[in-house]
Amino acid sequence: MSALPPICTPVTLTGPHVHLLPLAREHAGALAEAARDGALWQLWYTAVPQPEGMAAEIERRLGLLERGAMLPFTVCDADGVPVGMTSYMNVDAANQRVEIGSTWYAQRVQRSGLNTNAKRLLLGHAFEQLDCIAVEFRTHRLNTQSRRAIERLGAQLDGMLRAHQRSPNGTLRDTAVYSITAAEWPVVRAHLDHQLARPR
């Protein structure tokens, strides 16, 4: 493997609600079980791997890692049980920009502190260790749950990429693009830390 850009150097990130581990082939079985929780692959507006396709999805993400285009993580709950996936993707090493995406979680941990904690760790690493100038988030225009979650993080809507991609069902996807800049990070960090400190 050629030298990876710093953004793609595997790292473990840990918080009170979540552990982000470098994605590994041995996580396939547990991740397949996580995807079954809520039958997430049936959601038309997002792309979650089917349980029987989990090993292939892991290979796809690890292939992007080898090319310096993605840093994939296995998302584990506070007990260390795999409950989903996330990644740094669309890596722009020259401009120190990255997108946090390709994220999905088992239904049982949705709307919990896990996502906020995961995003706090990923954003902190991007801005404080990798010196990123901006971090992006992208989602389907009609994925209201995802858009509200991104906005609750403190990200700003940059705009809409119309007819941006073809969805698995053949429809055209309008992509909502959000970002947080390095200058905004101190305020966003304080906001996320406050959210995580609140009793649940």
Score class of each variant (00 low, 15 high):
82 P>Y: 08
131 D>A: 15
98 V>R: 03
31 L>S: 03
119 K>S: 06
59 E>G: 12
81 V>Q: 08
66 E>H: 12
129 Q>D: 15
71 L>S: 11
54 M>L: 06
93 A>C: 05
69 A>C: 11
50 Q>P: 01
70 M>A: 12
112 S>W: 03
111 R>P: 02
53 G>V: 07
36 R>H: 08
84 G>V: 01
79 D>A: 15
80 G>T: 11
108 R>Y: 01
71 L>A: 12
103 T>L: 01
103 T>Q: 01
124 G>E: 09
76 C>Q: 13
73 F>A: 12
79 D>W: 05
117 N>C: 15
105 Y>G: 02
42 Q>C: 03
73 F>D: 11
115 N>C: 05
120 R>P: 00
59 E>F: 03
36 R>M: 10
121 L>D: 08
81 V>E: 04
51 P>W: 02
107 Q>H: 12
118 A>V: 07
98 V>I: 08
81 V>L: 07
29 G>S: 13
75 V>W: 03
78 A>G: 06
62 L>R: 14
29 G>N: 10
88 Y>D: 09
106 A>Q: 03
57 E>R: 13
37 D>S: 01
53 G>M: 08
32 A>G: 08
32 A>I: 04
78 A>Q: 14
110 Q>M: 04
68 G>V: 11
122 L>H: 07
78 A>Y: 03
63 G>E: 10
94 A>H: 10
112 S>D: 07
92 D>T: 01
40 L>P: 04
105 Y>Q: 09
69 A>G: 12
31 L>V: 04
46 T>M: 12
118 A>F: 04
67 R>T: 08
121 L>E: 08
92 D>G: 00
33 E>F: 01
79 D>N: 14
116 T>V: 13
56 A>W: 04
105 Y>T: 01
72 P>F: 11
60 R>D: 12
81 V>M: 05
44 W>V: 14
88 Y>Q: 11
71 L>D: 07
45 Y>F: 15
55 A>N: 07
31 L>H: 02
131 D>Q: 14
56 A>L: 12
80 G>C: 09
57 E>N: 13
38 G>M: 02
94 A>D: 13
76 C>A: 15
97 R>L: 10
62 L>G: 09
57 E>Y: 10
60 R>W: 07
129 Q>F: 00
128 E>I: 10
54 M>I: 12
63 G>P: 12
55 A>C: 06
64 L>D: 13
